[in-house]
Design a binder for these strands. Structure first.
Length: 416
RNA sequence: GUGGGUAUGGCGCAGUUGGAAGCGCGCAAGAUUGUGGCUCUUGAGGCCGUGGGUUCGAGCCCCACUACUCACCCCA
């Protein structure tokens, strides 16, 4: 028996409807917001992620699925969605279309991690990226998409955390101040953080080690170091969210694990799905396009984990749409009418009505039991009477009611 | 990468101090029924995660490995 690779999941026939439900809402919503779908390859040149995501991040350092292909190229399964979109934006000259370009995607992403609740090696993300607007309104729009999405699914009680980690300039100032402060308290930091001071001091803010937390309590706060532009940007985002009545909390310690973020960062967090509570995370990444080889282009977006979303919906008991079941099951009174059933099923299908018949050679009774177990809503028995009169008895399986209809009447009935 | 927990039919689980592998659900066939649902009968399906050890004898005790799982870390 060969089993499934660690950290991956089958989506089985009896549960795929949940995915359809969520995906349909994503597409509906994206249409309403004027987002167009973009599909980029499952794998990219490794260098894209080294440059885009950043080579000090855990994702790039130890979590990528990287291999050398037969042409001796270093290839990596995408560990996140944004870098590929930025690459496509540059490579296809999307910058020369009217800006901003508003895009969404649903894609698999791959990270070599140790699986636990809400964490897999292959998971799926709904992502939104808006390229070509530096305006806070774009940030607000992106956040409002996520917020509206949760609302549409009936999910309540998420916390929206926001922060602004500054642009290149003010982040540098803050980084220096932070480094200086941390150096002064280096004995109290955990070993991991000690090694992080120079490479990525911001990450230390996120450390959960008790001793580090204590140090962080008195650390300089990044919002105090924002330049006037960033400060204004932050305020405008907040005002925009207020006017849409989107609740949020400022979290000066919110740092994201990808290097490309600049300015606005945010997360939607739940406490109900175990330790991996971030359902959606995103922010602004104004330097990414340039980093990937394009001309400087501001951008903002988010990634939303669909497995975590479903986990959340299930633990919250949010009503999911029911599994899709064919409308009608058609069975012959006896073997002589098998082919008449085939014809009827085919006729209904041609009219876009989902219809099925027995393909296992079961007895009449067994077919009835089967139809009941599967949960067909309607039933038609075809025998001599039906063929002679052209009138078919349509039985409602939930209440037992019977309606008499001819062939066309059946089609109209299901189209109602 | 570091810890903890778990491993018995498709799924959920019992299995006493070591002494003939069981139950519920599901699945399949049949009986009954107004053409299904309720009820009844029958059946299929297990190398008890793998490999060692202790013992007359191991699902149970010991060791190793593997897988799954939860948490750290990190992230969606």
């Amino acid at each position: 028996m060969i089993n499934i690779p660690k950290g991956t999941k089958d989506i089985l026939p009896q549960e795929s409807y949940k995915w359809h439900y969520v995906e349909n809402i994503i597409r509906e919503l994206s249409h309403v917001y004027g987002l167009s779908e973009i599909r980029t390859p499952t794998f990219e040149h490794t260098e894209l992620f080294l440059r885009g995501v950043g080579d000090t991040t855990d994702i790039v350092n130890k979590e990528m699925y990287t291999f050398t292909d037969k042409g001796d190229r270093s290839i990596t399964l995408k560990p996140e969605g944004t870098a590929g979109v930025a690459r496509a934006y540059v490579e296809n000259g999307l910058g020369s279309f009217p800006q901003p370009i508003k895009m969404y995607y649903i894609t698999s992403v791959f990270r070599y991690e140790k699986p636990q609740t809400g964490r897999l090696r292959e998971h799926h993300q709904f992502g939104v990226e808006i390229f070509g607007s530096d305006n806070p309104l774009a940030d607000v729009e992106v956040i409002s998409i996520a917020s509206f999405f949760f609302k549409k699914l009936g999910i309540e009680g998420l916390t929206l955390k926001i922060n602004n980690i500054g642009c290149k300039k003010c982040r540098q100032n803050y980084n220096n101040a932070l480094k200086e402060y941390l150096m002064g308290n280096i004995e109290d930091l955990c070993p991991i953080c000690k090694s992080r001071i120079n490479k990525n001091p911001l990450r230390i803010l996120d450390c959960k080690e008790l001793s580090c937390k204590k140090v962080i309590e008195n650390a300089p706060i990044c919002t105090d170091f924002l330049c006037p532009e960033c400060k204004e940007h932050k305020e405008k985002v907040e005002r925009g969210l207020n006017s849409l009545s989107i609740e949020y909390v400022n979290d000066p310690y919110l740092v994201r694990g990808l290097d490309y973020y600049t300015g606005t960062v945010f997360e939607f967090v739940s406490e109900k799905i175990g330790a991996q509570g971030t359902v959606c995370g995103g922010g602004r990444y104004n330097d990414l396009v340039e980093e990937v080889g394009g001309k400087a282009t501001p951008a903002v977006g988010f990634g939303l984990g669909i497995e975590r979303l479903l986990l959340l919906m299930e633990t919250m008991g949010v009503l999911l749409k029911e599994k899709e079941i064919s409308e009608v099951f058609i069975l012959p009174q006896n073997d002589l009418f098998q082919n008449e059933c085939l014809k009827m099923v085919s006729y209904l299908r041609e009219n876009k009505i989902s219809a099925e018949n027995d393909i296992s050679g079961r007895s009449f009774k067994a077919q009835l039991k089967y139809a009941n177990k599967i949960g067909f809503k309607y039933l038609i028995v075809i025998g001599e009477t039906e063929l002679d009169s052209g009138i078919f008895s349509l039985k409602n399986m939930t209440n037992g009611e019977i309606i008499e209809l001819n062939k066309k009447g059946l089609v109209d009935f299901f189209r109602r």
